[in-house]
Amino acid sequence: MVVDVVLKPEISDPQGQAVLGALGRLGHPGVRSVRQGKHFVLEVDGDPDETELRQIAETLLANPVIEDVELHLPTD
């Protein structure tokens, strides 16, 4: 199972802005915006439980005050 954590749109991301600045210097002026986030890969015993995963994501992996979560469960 994968959890992606990204800053909420209204929270400024100075790290992403620094990456954007470097991309401009490297000759990629077409990149308009960079937002930096976190990517968690969880291996669990048994079937993945979306409710439990959401609880894990929203109580520890992300801070809901400033971050949003995206859950990706195995599809097979």
Partner: peptide
């Protein structure tokens, strides 16, 4: 304290890095 929910808001990377 913010992470524990005892105080509102959050502390993030300094704007100037």
């Amino acid at each position: 304290l913010c992470e524990a929910g005892l105080l509102p808001g959050a502390l993030t990377r300094n704007g100037h890095l």
